[in-house]
Nucleic acid binder design. Structure first.
Lengths: 240, 240
DNA sequence: CCTCAATATTGAGTGTACTCAGAATTGAGT
DNA sequence: ACTCAATTCTGAGTACACTCAATATTGAGG
């Protein structure tokens, strides 16, 4: 009998000891970080606390996330990924996904729908959200952030797609009417939608933080966000 | 003879010894910070270096700016203030300021004009600019930042004003045409302009940083910025 | 000129994000 | 089983932003 019967039960298709240990450690760190960030906030959580909670040396944490914000991005990536997998499930996508096919509702509504999970999440964890937003828009290029950016890019693509649909509806009259005025004629139509999508994301992140700081006069945040979306939809619709 | 003849030469209208010393110290710190940030960048400048360059104890620096970013904001406030004073000089304002009066040029051009100094500065000092943008949009509420935000608010007001002018031109036809489609009818007209202005600022900050990270495909940044402005102008013009 | 409260300055001390040289572990080759 | 190179882990060490108790400076009132 071989001492390596392990290898039989966990075949070569699965990971070796080392890889498995690594994955477990990664999972522990991820869970610890998630829990601590959630209950004590980003600033009040120290890397050594995370290490202790994950039962790992401090240096090890830095091997999985080179930076405290990177650790946060690792958590965000995991959560966002889980959310994506949960919502993009086949059964639902049949009803919702195809975009143009589901013509039901105003373009702005359909965009609001897209960003609504983001808005909800950011409101729930506003302290973390500030750090996340900061990092998304102005962070340095690092692997975990990159993965979060991929999520953001996908979101922006969906928004852009709906902006395009909206443009199709509103086209003709208005497009023609504003054409001369808009100056920059003859651009690829996708460009305006992409710009609009990025504007919406940046705007939403900024406005949410603004409201968090009480810098929104009387009105509700949703009203402001809605106005923002309406404006971009109108702008993208009118654009040539 | 009085020992206090000083008091005569520097009358009560001027500041006392203490205040003067304080102002001098402040000036030294400001100059040191400005120089060091400019030549070595934000991250690679340490507070102790600033203290040494200003010939002041480290703790003293923190009395004038509670935080390293606050120190940066102090510098930005000073520079922006100087710029404002230089450009808002009476002679020029007679030609440029009144807004609607100077109907020359497209609305988008007139807005691009407004943000052009900001864009130039951010390009020149892109590392610093990232930190500044970060702090403007997502920083914690602190005195120097507050003063910078005042500058930003003023800029946004100017942009909003020009957006309103533009709306006046394009009004009628389009406004009426899109009314039903835009959904949220009967809003105060200023709201859309204010939102648009904030969108432009946030968008410009984000896009500039995006370009800094090489995340802009082929095109020139100016093209992207221009498209952004066009989009908002169109959106604000069409908005009810 | 002296006193004293108010205020400003100082720099050694503290917490914490991050580094890195060595120790430990692994798996492939023999 | 043994060797060895590659990888992973570790935690004491470092740098630096920020604090704070002690000290120095000022100006007003006697």
């Amino acid at each position: 009998m071989e001492t390596r019967d392990d290898t039989e039960l966990a075949p070569s298709a699965t990971l070796g000891r080392r890889e498995r240990a690594k994955a477990e450690k990664r999972a522990r760190i991820l869970a610890a970080a998630r829990a601590l960030f959630e209950e004590r906030g980003f600033e009040r959580t120290s890397m050594s606390e995370v290490a202790r909670a994950a039962d790992v040396a401090e240096g090890t944490v830095f091997q999985y996330a080179a930076t405290k914000v990177e650790l946060l991005m690792m958590v965000v990536d995991a959560l966002w990924g889980a959310h994506e997998r949960a919502t993009t499930t086949p059964s639902l996508s049949a009803f919702v996904a195809p975009g143009a096919a589901t013509a039901g509702g105003e373009t702005a509504d359909r965009i609001a729908e897209l960003i609504s999970p983001l808005v909800t999440a950011m409101r729930r964890w506003s302290e973390l959200a500030t750090w996340v937003a900061r990092e998304i828009l102005f962070g340095a290029d690092m692997p975990h952030r990159r993965r979060v950016l991929d999520h953001v890019d996908r979101l922006e693509e969906q928004i852009a797609a709906r902006l395009q649909d909206g443009r199709a509806d509103a086209s003709g009259a208005i497009g023609a009417a504003r054409d001369g005025a808009t100056g920059t004629a003859g651009e690829e139509p996708g460009a305006a939608a992409a710009t609009g999508a990025r504007l919406i994301v940046a705007g939403v992140l900024a406005e949410l933080n603004r409201s968090r700081q009480g810098r929104i006069d009387g009105e509700d945040v949703d009203v402001v966000l809605r106005r923002l979306i309406d404006l971009v939809v109108a702008g993208a619709g009118a654009a040539r």
